[in-house]
């Protein structure tokens, strides 16, 4: 049980760390796909199948595509030009900040007594129950999320759209 979790963790952390360290953006985007798939595997391990499918659909499917498109659209025309190497001092400062947060979090986790050492059977939550919850108590949140997604879509289109050079006279 724990072994599977450790394997999944190594996959997630390893691919995330390597992805963020690579110079080639396409490679790191592909590694992010692996990382997100690993997170989906974690959800499956934890018994949250529906969340795992949502993760696969949205991250592995959609977000990775958007990222790839962004990478391809913003590639420098001269691919041979070396990207400005990230400065060493900034990396060290980042490591200090990240290490500080990590130290605090790990210390807190290891220092807190957890009384659920015996894992119960995996809770079952069927799609039907999730649907009932979404359409019942959380219906308002669902509507707001739908609205948010619509607005985000429109906003993304507006931000990324090319401004026409000539100003058209008709009303719009």
């Amino acid at each position: 049980m724990n072994l599977a979790l450790i394997l999944i963790s190594v996959l997630i952390l390893g691919s995330a760390a390597v992805a963020l360290a690579l110079r080639n953006l396409i490679h790191s985007a592909l590694l992010f796909v692996g990382c997100w798939a690993g997170i989906a595997a974690f959800y499956l391990w934890a018994g949250a199948e529906f969340v795992a499918f949502a993760q696969v659909l949205i991250y592995v499917g959609a977000v990775s595509m958007v990222v790839l498109f962004a990478v391809l659209l913003t590639r420098q025309s001269d691919a041979a030009e070396p990207m400005n190497p990230d400065s060493f001092s900034r990396f060290m400062r980042a490591l200090v900040a990240g290490g500080g947060v990590a130290g605090i979090l790990v210390g807190a986790i290891l220092g807190t007594p957890m009384d659920v050492s015996t894992a119960g059977p995996a809770p079952t939550l069927t799609v039907k129950e999730i649907g009932g919850q979404l359409m019942g108590p959380h219906a308002a949140a669902l509507l707001i999320v739908g609205l948010l997604l619509t607005v985000a879509l429109l906003g993304a289109v507006v931000i990324a759209a090319v401004d026409r050079p000539e100003k058209s006279e008709d009303a719009s």
Partner: peptide, 19 residues
């Protein structure tokens, strides 16, 4: 416990993303 492992995973992933 598995819970602690999960929390460690999540905090380490958080820090990898932060760095």
């Amino acid at each position: 416990s598995p819970l602690q492992l999960c929390l460690l995973l999540s905090s380490l992933l958080f820090c990898v993303g932060l760095v």
